[in-house]
Design a protein around this nucleic acid. Sequence first.
DNA 1: GCCGTTTTCGGCCCGACTGTTTTCAGTCG
Length: 568
Amino acid sequence: MQNGEIARELERIATLMEIKDEAYYRILGYRRAAESVVAQGRPVREMEDLTKLAHVGAATAGVIRDLAEDRTPQLLSDLLEEVPAGLVEVTRLPGVGPRTAGRLWRELGITSVEELGALEEGKLAALKGFGKKSEERVLKAARTYNATEKRMLLNEATNLAGEILEFVRSHPACERAEVAGSLRRQKETIGDLDIVASSGEMKALADAFAEAPFVQEVLAHGPTKVFIKTRGVEVDLRIVEPEAYGALLHHFTGSQAHNIVLRERAVKRGLNISEYGLARAGTGEYEPVASEAELYERLGLPYIPPELREDAGELLAAEKGELPDLIEVGDIRGDLHVHTNFSDGRGTIESMAEAAISLGYEYLVFCDHSQSLKVANGLSPERLKRKIEAVREADEKYGEIRLLNGSEVDILKDGTLDYEDALLAELDFVVASIHTSFNIGEEAMTERMIRAINNPYVRTIAHPTGRVLNRREPYEVDVSRLIREAARTNTALELNSYVDRLDLSVPYVREAIGAGVKITIDTDAHDEGALGFARFGVSQARRAWVEKGSVVNTLPLAEFEAYLREGK
DNA sequence: GCCGTTTTCGGCCCGACTGTTTTCAGTCG
């Protein structure tokens, strides 16, 4: 099992224990262990001592070991014998938690969302603590439940949040407002949106928001907190007095795991943290904190950027003064992987070049598809040669930017490349990637890609795991082996910035830079607008603790050209 | 369950909103 699956199983264990009404802190232990596994870069399967992970002790380590080696842990099989597995899904219904799910099971014999949805009217309302409203809400949730929840891509979430933010900011009662939550941390996909605001008239702003034109449904509405649904997305607005804005922004940016460890740290120093500010322990009298920087400072820490707030070692690094100097969008000097209408792009060499110039880039590498990828109008050797000429001519025309020749050459099923080496030698930069024969098994796929990595002309491997968010799982490949091989051969790995790829994913990027592998942050743009997706590639790199020095295309033109000349 | 610069036992983050209640449990973030 991979880290993600292991974490999901640990979550499932925690939920089953919650339904059983086990001790709260025992459950919390498994939940925090799940988060540690997700945050971990390299596959936990390869770790010798699992208790080195935060929040993992002897017991949880045994469970993780079993899962990693595809055995069912005794704990899990015992739980599944006692608690129906379908109840885990019941707890995912909005407004239904583990306690309610447990009662539904014990008192009504419910074991799945489907059974709950088919329940006769009045049965639920008759339970103690339930009423008509609760019944209506729960039944509706069960009947409209959709198991395959789709999460927003970063650009969709950014656009939607922008519109909502504009409404909030334009209200006269609003002093400041920002996006918080997972979007501010730039998680790869976004479920809900969190907006925070400060205001001297909180209730007026809350009421206005609940009646905003984009509101589909009001889920909760108090004087400082409004929870609505718009276009199927839940949006949470939280409001505080202006003096407490920093504490609120921090609180709602999360992650929850980061907040918890930070608060525990504060408690040890005699302080409580809440969204209202800092208090001497036990007094409940909060002193407002106006900025996040001030909050960290008063805890004796340097500012921790939102992208790092995942309880993935950032507090320890902050204490030691070893936080990374994270890469920024402005550090990107060029894009090494863009398409044109020679293959399946919509832009021309010129239009793409001009879009790159307007971003301030110093160089741009055109990488159209290779001959065997017919569906993408891949270039035959003859057409590639014509394109090489066309790029050279265009390069003469533009003084502001260096235009270079590349190819996104297919790695064929046997690991050979889709052009002869002699042709690859004529190119400035070669990107290699997989677009066919995804299901050949982990061993064969790994060997196939390692063969490509060992080709002397291949400088980076594009979208190395082939995943497409919300659409396609990554193919099976041993990424850790690819990373070791890339390090050995001085081959880079791509962090593809296209919003539905973001591939390599963050944990692997962190593993790769740890192994000394260079990263290319490319957009794979098929039109001019997509060049702007570089910001999302950069935000993922920041989540992976990447500094500018680890990224090939932060090199100024002269140094980049030297890098090209040196070869591998 | 985990964890330790007051520790190997006794702690373990914090608050808003809802529904069904007359004081609070459950859910959520």
